[in-house]
Amino acid sequence: MNNEMIKYPFTLTIHPFKCFWELKYELNQRMNLIISVVILFSLILTNVLSNQYAGFIVNLYHPEEINSLMEIVYVVVPVLFFCVANWSLTTLMDGEGKFVEIVISTCFALTPLILINFPWIWLSNFISMQEAMFFYLSQSFAVAWFLFLLFIGNMTVHQFTPSKTFATMLLTIAAMGFLAFLCLLFFSLVQQIVGFFSVIYQEIVLRY
């Protein structure tokens, strides 16, 4: 069974319609969630490794600006934002998906990004400028594949029609922007409040 579960993300990339259905209705939710986290983690690992070890031809990096911790943020935050935005929208739009299901389908859709980019970390060390074209081609292919899976996953989870899924996707992107704006607003307000109280505290301490 375990072996089957490990194979599952790979099967899913090739048979998205069948597998997303099984994910939602037939498989153990707990197990799915664990695999989702593993996928998320491997994507972070892929990005970190490719920042450091991808070939010089395709990877010009400033040693002072590499930050592996930020790579975690770059992966986790967009996924989280997407899931929250998507969930908030689809609950209003008669989607059948629960939050957990959205998270699981989103994470599983990330598989092609790992599947294609991970071997390229090693492979990109053996290419020339002309062959770098294949690198960029396969990267775009990975992204296209990921988007396709995301679309199918979302459609299956919410039991939407394709056109409705497309519309929700566009709205989700808008909602993500909105979310980001609210977060920034919230943090800057909190910062100001904290600043305000700390200034008051300083004033009192200096006076008495």
Binding site: F56, I57, F126, S128
Partner: peptide, 18 residues
């Protein structure tokens, strides 16, 4: 070429090396 961050020349050298 890696130090001078010159990808074009690096690529040329690499092809020959390969």
């Amino acid at each position: 070429f890696r130090i001078s961050l010159d990808q074009n020349n690096y690529s040329k050298a690499y092809l020959l090396y390969r």
